[in-house]
Every structure is written in structure tokens, then in C-alpha cells.
Simulated assay, not measured.
Amino acid sequence: MEQQGDSISRLLRAWRARIDAHTLPELRWVQPRPGRRLSQAHVARMTGVSEGWYRALEAGRRQDFSESFLLRVAQALRLSDAETLTLFLAVTGRRPPGLPARPREDLPEGVRSLLQQQVSYPCYLSDTAWNVVAANDLMGEWFPWVLRPAPNLMRWALLHPEAREQMLDWEDNCARQYLAMLRVAANSDPANAELRALVREILDADADCRRIWSEEHDVVEHRDGHVFRLCLPYHGHTEVRVASHVLLPIQRPDLRFVFITPLTD
């Protein structure tokens, strides 16, 4: 613990030392006018706490530091996403909530290339609200809905009539799984307005989903390795069994890289 505290102490001092206080609009009207050096008192003022409270953080002493306070520290010190992550992990052991979302179209070239090079299996990228942001050609051939405007896996699987025909054993093997995943996601990120709206839309629109939601309490974080039975036009409406595999690109942990592989047994 002491080594961890010492480490974050040194980082916080370094992050504070690199900032020119004269450039900060938050200190523009402070009297007397601060010098170039950003002090602990300045950071305390910018984050709305006492100097002693901020000093305890910078000294690496254990306190009940709130997430909102740490986010204000990150803003005051102009921390990058990686620096904010380091601060949160060192102080709370958790990842920070609500880092600014990057544009869905802003895909790392390596991730985009890997997706396009997949010619044996359908695969796609989705965000934390299950919006499909990119898909390979085979995914579009198996599941033409991904080519429609603003495709969303949950809306299609839970609300679209064709999903109930194409995903066999729809209620037990699809709806209950996906609603259990939505339950985890909604509770893991309550500040995600898009996710909350998606849950409301699905429950408002479909009586079966409302019934399953009210009678079930299962939670599922992901469907990696889950087996689905499909009946798709692409396969001449003959049954196929597939498994889904979910990967998280390290460059974009807000995205899921999903492969769909046929089972032969």
C-alpha cells in the first residue's frame, strides 16, 4: 500500500508541476494572482475541497475520496484518459466512470483491418449500447439487418419479428440471455442515458420482454461462448448451430469484437 501511495504521490506532483497556473481560466480572477507554479491550494480551490483534503490525496494517504472528486482532480490537472485511469486504479482500485466517449466511427486502423480481413466467419463491432458500428461482408450476408440505418443488436433480437423466426428457441436461448445482459449493463453504468433509453424502449414495446424482465432475476455479463440455433435465409432456412466469441480491443475497450463461428458437431 505504501509503495502504491508513494507512486501516485509522485505522479500527482509531476502532473501538477507541468501545468502553468497562468494558463488556467479557473484561476484568472484569483487574488493575489498566482505565479507560474500550480500549488496544492490552487488544485484544492479548483476541485472544491480544503487544501488538507487534496494534500491527503497527493500524499497517498487513504481517505474516502469520491469518484466525483477524483474526476474534478483529473480535470484540474488536465489528465489524459490513461492518466485518469491510473489515478482511479491507484486510489480506488476501480476504473473511472464516464470517460468521454470517442466517436463510433473513430476505429483504430488495426481493428478495422482485422474486421475486414475476416472472410471465414461473420464478425462485427458493437459499442456498450449494442450499436453495430462496423461489420464484415459475411455478417451482412448472414444478417442483412446490420446493413440498415443505425443497426442495434438488442433492438433487432428483442423487437424485430424476423429475429423470432431466425433465432430458434427465441425466448429461452435469446430473449432471456439478452435481457439478462441488459440488466447487468444498466446497473453497471447507470449514467449511460442511451443504455437506459434502450432498456425502456424494449420493455415499453414488447409484452414478452416485460414479462421475462419481471419474472427473471438472472444476470449475464456477456455471451462469449454462448451457442445459438439459427434458421437464416443465407443457409436456405436450414438449422445451423453457432457460437459467439467476444473480444475487447485494447485500443478501444468501449467496443466489443464479436465473431460467430459455426459448430460442426
Score class of each variant (00 low, 15 high):
199 V>F: 01
233 P>A: 12
186 A>N: 02
198 L>Y: 06
225 G>K: 06
227 V>P: 02
216 E>S: 15
191 A>F: 03
232 L>E: 10
223 R>M: 14
191 A>P: 00
216 E>P: 00
189 D>A: 12
220 V>Q: 15
230 L>W: 10
196 R>F: 02
189 D>T: 12
219 V>C: 11
225 G>Q: 08
232 L>Y: 10
225 G>S: 07
231 C>K: 15
189 D>L: 05
188 S>A: 15
221 E>R: 10
218 D>L: 00
210 R>G: 02
212 I>M: 11
222 H>Q: 12
232 L>G: 10
225 G>A: 05
230 L>Q: 11
214 S>Q: 15
231 C>F: 03
217 H>M: 03
189 D>R: 12
189 D>Q: 11
210 R>Y: 08
231 C>P: 01
225 G>V: 05
223 R>Q: 13
200 R>G: 07
226 H>V: 03
230 L>C: 08
218 D>Y: 00
191 A>I: 01
193 A>W: 02
201 E>W: 09
211 R>H: 14
207 A>C: 02
223 R>F: 14
206 D>S: 06
207 A>R: 14
187 N>S: 13
190 P>T: 07
211 R>Q: 13
213 W>P: 05
209 C>T: 00
188 S>Q: 14
202 I>R: 06
212 I>H: 06
191 A>C: 03
201 E>A: 13
206 D>I: 05
198 L>W: 05
229 R>M: 05
225 G>D: 10
231 C>V: 04
228 F>N: 10
220 V>I: 13
227 V>M: 14
192 N>E: 06
215 E>F: 03
222 H>W: 08
201 E>G: 10
216 E>D: 15
208 D>F: 04
220 V>W: 03
218 D>P: 00
221 E>T: 09
215 E>R: 09
187 N>R: 14
226 H>T: 04
205 A>R: 12
220 V>R: 14
209 C>D: 00
214 S>A: 15
219 V>W: 06
194 E>M: 07
233 P>T: 05
227 V>Y: 05
210 R>Q: 15
195 L>P: 00
209 C>G: 01
221 E>M: 04
221 E>C: 01
219 V>F: 11
232 L>V: 08
233 P>G: 07
225 G>I: 04
225 G>L: 05
215 E>V: 07
212 I>A: 03
187 N>T: 09
227 V>T: 13
196 R>E: 08
191 A>R: 13
212 I>W: 09
189 D>M: 10
193 A>E: 15
200 R>P: 04
189 D>H: 09
194 E>T: 13
230 L>R: 07
189 D>E: 13
193 A>Q: 14
